[in-house]
Design a protein around this nucleic acid. Structure first.
Length: 585
RNA sequence: GCGCCCGUAGCUCAGUGGAUAGAGUAUUGGCCUCCGAAGCCAAGGGUCGCAGGUUCGAAUCCUGCCGGGCGCGCCA
């Protein structure tokens, strides 16, 4: 459990007691009272601003509240000290027994350590991610969104949310017709025709050759002499299916999976777009009108044109948005509205979309759409992932589709492994650009966070293996270690490690609430660092080694601490989809 | 021109309205007979882009500038 909740209860009880005693005015609201770890550990384990926040409403000086509150807090058996500091903070330091209890909880919980019911009352969540166009294999640019979305979904599941992982297949635009024509060319090629260079405007990739070959195998020359209108639907369907199979395979190599795949073409075919238009019409949110040209950057071929427009400006967007192209077909936005209406219909209360940063200009209109379609009962959070710059020893990797130096996701995973790709993608906030240097991420040093964290877990496993070796007579199962007497663990470095282990549940909760899976990666690096530090202290002071021959109670206590550390590391790594290995190489 | 994102140590970046703003890297100097040195410890390094405002308190919230990225009606 998140120990801040325990501490929060202690403070809350003390405040109530002060109210009863008449020290504080009756009916005082305790809003805004927070408990936070102080930046400087010298200020204790946790600080509360209670006195500062309540001073105004109570009509008292902060210290006049802080002093009696601190007196009460000191009475609690888990509190070692409660000091009033600065303008009226109360710094609490907990007794070591408090931390021992947290470690025991971690071991007992095992793979569920930090799991919470945070999302139980927050309704179903839909996380849509990747949604790469089905026109070819995934490239590295897609990897970041894939990892981010997958880790975020896992994080939310772990926090008690009902989560659906979803992929939106953009299979309705002109691009899939281009795909069909490209596949048709490969089909004729497979029939023995010399097609020469792939014409401008078609997809030149080799990956369409097997698609053409399969079609030739199945249909022979049946389509070869027919006009495009005859073969296009079939070729389009077959090519899209083949591309989606390719994409799912690529995702599989990274351990990324989705529960639901929604086809844009399917939505259109089912009349979902018309349905949404009817819904908007009924609410008077659609009209025929003419847009102003964008100021300062007027397209050369601008002509005023009457269009079907959605009143996005009523919901915070800058301009109203067109739903129909001039040829009468739907805009991408129209089908996207239908798609989001469908998500809302399916009962999701929170929608999370993971997009590339180049879609930033699209966010406001989608937010407006979701507000309009759900009567503002559903929240949409769009997470934009910035670009990944591929590097090799500090030099940018040149990429060009034409020159054939385009880097696919598959190539990167093959070269460095899925664990590395996944971890590195989470070592930056999603909205900051990320450098991915092949040389660094395959290096085995502290500079490579994947290695550093996995090494810590391997070291934990190694110690436990050594201590529990045959003939040692030690029982190091989780059940036993969870009951171990940890009272001998009082060294500052040991306490530091145990406090970091104890911080895990709060870290997961905060990351889930903020929709920020990168916080898991940063926590893991901190925890690994704390463990490596303690390990090395054992080299300087024999008394700090984990295995102390001749002192079984102490050794057992230390094994429990190591087990707690390994538990937190493994749980965190599992959430972001990286394997917690038992040994390296 | 407008909108969104970013601006924190030489470099790459963390930072839930709290106290003296952190980590890695680079630089300098230490630590292996001993549970994995693939590691650890220490030192130096900052007008948190600039200027106002809100607040008991601002890197964090608001406004205006400056600099960088992305986007801006029939592409998806």
């Amino acid at each position: 459990m998140n120990y801040f909740n325990i501490l929060s209860d202690i403070v809350e009880d003390s405040l109530k007691a002060l109210g009863k005693a008449g020290t504080l005015p009756p009916g005082l609201e305790h809003r805004g009272v927070t408990l936070e770890p102080p930046r400087d550990p010298k200020h204790g384990d946790v600080a509360t601003n209670a006195a500062l926040v309540l001073a105004g409403a109570a009509g008292m000086k902060p210290r006049a509240i802080a002093e009696p509150l601190a007196v009460l807090l000191r009475v609690h058996p888990d509190v070692a000290s409660a000091e009033v500091a600065g303008p009226g903070f109360i710094n609490l330091t907990m007794r070591s027994g408090f931390w021992h209890a947290r470690v025991a909880e971690a071991i007992a919980a095992g793979a569920d350590y930090g799991r919470s019911a945070l999302g139980k009352r927050r309704g179903a969540v839909n996380v849509e991610y990747v949604s790469a166009n089905p026109t070819g294999p995934m490239h590295v640019g897609h990897a970041r969104g894939a990892v981010f979305g997958d880790a975020l979904a896992s994080l939310l599941v772990f926090s008690g949310h009902a989560v659906t992982r979803e992929y939106y297949i953009n299979d309705a635009g002109a691009q899939v017709d281009v795909l069909a024509r490209s596949a048709y060319l490969r089909y004729r090629e497979a029939l023995g025709e010399a097609v020469g260079d792939i014409p401008e405007g078609l997809y030149p990739g080799e990956y369409l050759k097997p698609v053409g070959a399969a079609l030739a195998q199945e249909f022979g020359t049946r389509w070869a002499a027919l006009p495009e209108a005859e073969w296009l639907p079939t070729f389009r369907d077959r090519a899209i299916d083949a591309m989606m199979a390719l994409i799912r395979e690529d995702l599989g190599f990274m351990g990324v999976r989705h529960d639901v795949f929604v086809s844009e073409r399917g939505l259109v075919a089912d009349g979902k777009v018309e349905a949404v238009l009817a819904q908007l019409n009924a609410a008077a949110l659609v009209y025929e009108g003419t847009l102003e040209p964008p100021k300062g950057k007027e397209p050369d071929d601008w002509e005023p044109r009457e269009q079907t427009l959605f009143r996005a400006t009523l919901f915070g967007d800058e301009v109203d948005r067109p739903l129909r192209k001039s040829d009468g077909s739907w805009t991408y936005f129209a089908s996207d509205m239908a798609y989001h209406a469908d998500k809302i219909r399916r009962g999701f209360k929170t929608l999370i979309n993971v997009w590339g940063a180049d879609h930033g200009g699209y966010v406001k209109r989608m937010e407006a759409a979701v507000k309009a379609l759900s009567a503002e009962t559903v929240s949409l959070d769009v997470k934009l992932c910035q670009l990944v710059k591929l590097m090799r020893r500090g030099e940018p990797v040149k990429m060009s589709k034409r020159a054939g130096t385009f880097v696919t996701l598959r190539e990167v995973v093959d070269e460095v492994g899925k664990d590395v790709v996944r971890f590195i993608m989470l070592t930056r906030r999603n909205d900051a650009a990320l450098d991915f240097d092949f040389a660094v991420v395959t290096e085995e040093s502290r500079e490579n966070p994947v290695f550093y964290v996995q090494y810590a877990h391997a070291r934990c496993s190694s110690v436990l293996r050594t201590a529990g070796a045959e003939g040692s007579g030690r029982d190091l199962t989780a059940a036993t270690l969870a009951k171990a007497d940890l009272s001998r663990l009082t060294h500052p470095d040991e306490l530091a490690l145990m406090k970091t282990i104890a911080a895990w549940p709060r870290t997961v909760e905060a990351a889930a609430l903020a929709h920020e899976p990168h916080r898991i990666a940063f926590y893991l690096r901190d925890l690994a660092s704390s463990f490596h530090a303690l390990w090395s202290r054992g080299k300087e002071e024999d008394g700090l080694r984990f295995i102390i021959s001749g002192d079984e109670p102490l050794t057992l206590a230390r094994m429990a601490m190591v087990k707690g550390c390994a538990t937190a590391l493994a749980v965190g790594l599992n959430i972001i989809g990286v394997a917690p290995v038992e040994e390296l190489r």
